[in-house]
């Protein structure tokens, strides 16, 4: 369909990705008492995934014509 509806679909996918990050047991994988480079793994996970989510969103918004990675051509 239109580029607009494709964009909306991508954004909804990102929303679901965010839900997976923060609202599913996926979260508990990182809820461990360990540190990496002195920073607790949970903190690292939360902020890195957050940054990633924002970057992806920016990408979807700012480069709407970018073909999705899994398309064959």
């Amino acid at each position: 369909m239109t580029a607009r509806s494709l964009k909306i679909q991508k954004l909804i996918t990102l929303f679901i990705l965010g839900v997976i990050f923060y609202c599913t047991p996926f979260f508990s994988l990182f809820n461990v008492d360990k540190e990496f480079l002195g920073v607790p793994v949970l903190y690292l996970y939360l902020f890195i995934s957050w940054g990633l989510l924002i970057t992806l969103t920016a990408f979807v918004i700012e480069f709407p014509r970018m073909k999705s990675l899994n398309s064959s051509k």
Partner: peptide, 21 residues
């Protein structure tokens, strides 16, 4: 509460993805 302050900002981030709709 450690990371207990964060959901208040993660929620809007998630919601923002739906703003276009």
């Amino acid at each position: 509460t450690g990371v207990g302050f964060l959901p208040i900002y993660l929620g809007p981030t998630l919601m923002a993805a739906l703003w276009v709709v």
